[in-house]
Simulated scan of single mutants.
Amino acid sequence: MPTIGWVFLLGAIALVLGGLFMLRDSGKMPISKEKMKKIQERKAEIEAEESAEDREQW
């Protein structure tokens, strides 16, 4: 493969990896303690409702 082919190949790989790293770093959203507590409470409620529904079906 000619040198220009290797340059394009390495450039394409660098662009893909750079994009993936940027997505990974931008995906972190800080959640306040109050919101996290509400999320956990709501999750517990939903799980309790689902387990009650499962018991009713049997």
Rank of each mutant, 00 (worst) to 15 (best):
M1I: 09
M1N: 09
M1H: 08
M1T: 07
P2Y: 04
P2D: 08
I4G: 03
I4Q: 13
I4S: 14
I4F: 09
G5R: 06
W6I: 09
W6S: 11
W6H: 08
V7W: 04
V7I: 15
V7D: 04
F8D: 12
F8Q: 13
F8P: 00
L9C: 06
L10A: 14
L10G: 09
L10Y: 08
L10W: 08
L10T: 10
L10I: 11
G11D: 02
G11I: 01
G11W: 01
A12F: 08
I13Y: 03
I13Q: 03
I13V: 13
I13N: 01
I13T: 05
A14G: 09
A14I: 02
L15F: 04
V16S: 10
G18C: 02
G18R: 06
G19T: 09
G19A: 12
L20M: 11
F21W: 14
F21I: 13
F21P: 01
M22H: 08
M22F: 12
M22V: 12
L23P: 00
L23A: 15
L23T: 14
R24G: 08
D25P: 00
D25G: 11
S26H: 10
S26P: 00
S26K: 13
K28F: 10
K28N: 05
K28I: 06
M29R: 12
M29A: 10
M29D: 07
M29Y: 07
P30R: 08
P30G: 09
P30A: 11
P30K: 10
I31H: 03
I31F: 03
I31N: 02
S32N: 12
S32P: 01
S32Q: 04
K33H: 13
K33R: 15
K33I: 06
E34A: 14
E34P: 00
K35I: 02
K35G: 07
M36S: 14
K37S: 13
K37W: 03
K38E: 15
I39E: 05
I39N: 09
I39R: 06
I39W: 02
Q40A: 14
Q40F: 07
E41K: 14
E41N: 11
R42Q: 13
R42L: 04
K43D: 10
K43W: 02
K43I: 02
K43P: 00
A44Y: 01
A44P: 00
A44M: 09
E45A: 07
I46G: 04
I46D: 07
I46Q: 09
I46W: 05
A48M: 12
E49W: 04
E49C: 02
E49G: 06
E49Y: 07
E50A: 14
E50H: 05
E50I: 13
S51A: 15
S51W: 05
A52H: 10
A52K: 14
E53I: 09
D54C: 03
D54S: 13
D54V: 10
R55A: 15
R55W: 06
R55G: 06
E56A: 14
W58G: 12
W58V: 08
